[in-house]
Write a protein that binds this DNA or RNA. Structure first.
Lengths: 133, 133
DNA sequence: ATATCTGTCATATATATTATATAACAGATA
DNA sequence: TATCTGTTATATAATATATATGACAGATAT
């Protein structure tokens, strides 16, 4: 697995895990239909508790990024990925506005900020097939 | 004051306050040298505790966005605002990467994502004098 | 000078979040 | 039958968040 957790980070473990799994899907390291490790297996590999992994899986399932099959276990959403919901729009707006404001106050130009955004989008989607899905 | 807190938000009150003060500086609503309300005054106006405001002020002071004068009280940094530190770079990188990845998975194109970033930067700096400081 | 306001510090309490531990269940699998 | 799966329940510990109360020295205004 490509997942690395930072136990010292202020970001909760279950949230780090969620982020890295979504980044895995974005990069193509995890493809639609791919199986994921069991909660017990992944927990042991990462050296954390079963329920922490289960919390991440459950939240990702509720949002539609994962599916749980009685047979296949936990897999990456094989059909349509969740779209741009109102909730995601709100989160994107809130977080981007804070980051943009602080960047501006710290003297980062609009060009530098936008280029950073652009590059990070491209980095996260490098290994994928086409463009934005 | 232009500050509005959401008591139902998952974002801590002291963090909401920090964000809105930085956004105030970015927009020009708060200019270098401007006085800020006392911790007790602002706390009462917002209907929250003194120490919650004090926590926000203290953190903003530690990062260099505010100054505390024995005479003038708490004022917006009148000299050079803090620049693009390694800590801010790291935070920007971490948060933007997560947002970009989720946006990509949800089918938001690079153009749409970058335009959103650009517009939010421009919105937060609309009322200011020049460009990025 | 007296009273008031300032940021600051200390202490205490309540609540929610995060993470772990242990146990158990039904369904699927080998 | 034994093992693995996601899931649920319960419990505990540590940490973060927010509030409450009291106090201090320095500055300010009446």
């Amino acid at each position: 697995m490509f997942i690395e957790l930072d136990l010292q980070s202020e970001t909760p473990l279950y949230e780090q895990l969620i982020n890295q799994l979504i980044e895995g899907i974005a990069s193509g390291a995890l493809k639609p239909g791919d199986p994921l490790p069991s909660v017990r297996n992944l927990a042991e590999n990462l050296g954390i508790n079963l329920h922490t992994v289960n919390k991440s899986y459950t939240l990702l399932k509720q949002e539609g990024f994962l599916q749980v099959h009685r047979k296949k276990g936990v897999i990456v959403q094989p059909d349509a990925m969740p779209g741009v919901t109102a909730e995601f729009e709100a989160k994107l707006f809130r977080q981007l506005r804070s980051l943009a404001a602080e960047a501006a106050v710290r003297g980062m130009t609009e060009e530098a900020f936008v280029n950073r955004c652009k590059r990070l989008y491209e980095d996260t989607t490098m290994k994928r097939g086409g463009d934005g899905q």
